[in-house]
Design a protein around this nucleic acid. Sequence first.
DNA 1: CCCCTTATGGACCGTCGTTCCATAATGAGT
DNA 2: ACTCATTATGGAACGACGGTCCATAAGGGG
Lengths: 228, 228
Amino acid sequence: MPRTRGRAPAGGRADALSQEVVVGAAIALLDELGERGLTFRLLAEQLQTGTGALYWHVSSKDELVALAADQVLGHAVAADLDPAPSAGTALHALAIAVFDAFDQHPWAAPHVSAPPTLPNALRLLDRIGTLVARTGLPAEQRFAVSTAIFYYITGVSAQIIAPRAPLNATTERDAYLAQTAEHWQNLDPADYPFLTLITKDLRHHADRDQFITGLDILLRGLKTSADT
Amino acid sequence: MPRTRGRAPAGGRADALSQEVVVGAAIALLDELGERGLTFRLLAEQLQTGTGALYWHVSSKDELVALAADQVLGHAVAADLDPAPSAGTALHALAIAVFDAFDQHPWAAPHVSAPPTLPNALRLLDRIGTLVARTGLPAEQRFAVSTAIFYYITGVSAQIIAPRAPLNATTERDAYLAQTAEHWQNLDPADYPFLTLITKDLRHHADRDQFITGLDILLRGLKTSADT
DNA sequence: CCCCTTATGGACCGTCGTTCCATAATGAGT
DNA sequence: ACTCATTATGGAACGACGGTCCATAAGGGG
């Protein structure tokens, strides 16, 4: 790990590796092979170096994946720069932008931690908090409500997207859903009265709409708080 | 893995191992050492057997942990047996029961998958769906709303509780919060106007209340849907 | 009393994260 | 221009892990 955080008094090759480069290559591998496919050996090979060099820029695999996930989050938070509408619609758009980012990098969502420490996760929470404040919610409630929304976005995204990580194409997803639906269908209606009735909805649902449904309910609940 | 699911036509020792026993021992180790501490070698040692024997009852570590997590969920779903109040309060109590169960087994929450396949996760979703139906929500919306609540419970619990897995005692948690609060305090207020203002709330918040805050907002939003 | 099935447990394989260290490249001070 | 401390490299080596294999036990049904 680079020992000095200030100016480098010496060293620094022209072809130098950097944490940015390492994390970037890690993201590429994570996208292609998933979390289990990312290996220090493979990463070293891609970067034409050895595993030891990587540890100079990153202290562990956990940190590497956390940094990668935070960078994914960074794209989403940076992309969301509308001409500011109402706080409610801005929150809506922000949440969906984050979901879509995780959708393209299914390995990332579970690695955003709470309370946030990494820069882009912090930026997300700060943005949420600023928007929540704009709804006119009393100051004492802002922390709890903002973090609740943060938790919803990251937690529910992870929950919805994570099972897709092992899967690949859209066809595989359909097969997976069909199989699960059949499983539900074969349950005992006495034990599972609800599930056996709604397998058709399971078969035809879109993950993104699921996320938005819950988000809308949450934001509607928020609105009734703020109006009081 | 046991090849036959019907009656066993032969075999069956007196001191036989079983999936139940294996999963039970795994839960004990997970509670004590966390997910990284659970090892087939260690588990075999605890059960006075070899690793090969374990693979007869469980096909992989992933399956083992999934079964363990589902059993944790089972305790919560089984414990929640109030004299049925209103659907809203019943949902409230159910959600909190699940959160508390995960709270005692911090490794479990991230391993509940969606859409559910394991018996107790299915039971939870079914219960939610039944309660949602009781609120009078139109049938077309029940699937989306029920899964949204399911996602909230499991996803947000995981998000809130997961960072606690490496930690141990309450004192360590306080130190962790204090350190994070200090980190936020040192951020540039120009970049993070919200976070730098609410470090006191971060320091003194209770995770369980955070979960409940979001839950209340969600259920309030649900109510305004159902009333329409 | 066989014999087929269920179940065991320990040796073994390949791979992984991580550590170690000899060595290169570089800029600052003289 | 020559040190020399510092930054950075990369490949060998270590210990531990998940998982497989297989010789062997332990019953019960014919």
